[in-house]
Design a protein around this nucleic acid. Sequence first.
DNA 1: CGCGCAACCTGTCTGC
DNA 2: TGCAGACAGGTTGCGC
Length: 299
Amino acid sequence: MPELPEVETVARQLEPELEGHRIEELEVLDARWSRPVPPAALGDAVRGATIEGLGRRGKYLMLALDGDRTLVMHLRMTGNLVLVEGDDILDPAAGRLLYQGERTTEARHLRARCVLDDGRELWFTDPRRFGEAFLIDNADLPARFAKLGVEPFSPEFTPEALGGMAAGRTAPLKSFLLDQSRIAGVGNIYADEALYRARLHPLSPAGSMKPEHRLALRDAVVDVLQMGIDAGGSSIDDYRDGRGEKGTMQEKFLVHTREGQPCPSCEGEIVRIVVGGRSTYFCPSCQVKLRRRPRRRAK
DNA sequence: CGCGCAACCTGTCTGC
DNA sequence: TGCAGACAGGTTGCGC
């Protein structure tokens, strides 16, 4: 679930909290999280490091450490990174994580905990265990992320760039938006919301967009991601921000998870289909399906 | 290279 | 109540 807005929210919340602090210990409880590096090896490598910052690239969280290294983490489907301290460690009523030395609720999904020099702890919890982390030298970062696409908030994400990426593509627009090697950070939720706002059908071939469609889609992608950040992310199920709180973007969905409900624009019924194996919600009357563009204009 | 799909995991919900 | 099956926000690898 965590897509760009969720990862950005966590990074922005936690960066000021973590910056300048030293890592006393990194305990990896699930070997899957650090593999292929053994848990103890990652812990040893990170012990004593000072945190210099926390950022994001695509859906990756980047914890900058001294010594020109970065601990890269990915939340995948159900991962959460939360800062906990003292008593706070558990109050289910307050919607927070709990941990009392015993495995209770969320705490049973604890995959790694990072103890800071002031006693606070950074927890990586993840029921489905798809999340992961690795330590990398900053010099190797460009190569490692070479295949990651353009950042949606960068000046390079123009309608023309979008058109260039889509040219000749026959894959459905929905699949196109989810391709991290083209645009980094858009996931299933925001792809649906962006296509709806751009009034584009999720099954339209990516290469079928005309200039006005590219402009609309670029703007819609940027807008929905910004809305997501402003709302502190979407909490459909597992997602919690860096403080363990829910985001509110799910309350602003216009189509996602709204099967059978009225379209906010035409009152027609929102439909759910499966595209590329992913649930896709849209309004059949507002989102027009484009035809595949002829390769050559007939004269 | 482009595209579609299975696989990776666990938890939750639905229907019989 | 029990149980099988479907489904869930992401990414990678494989086959065509």
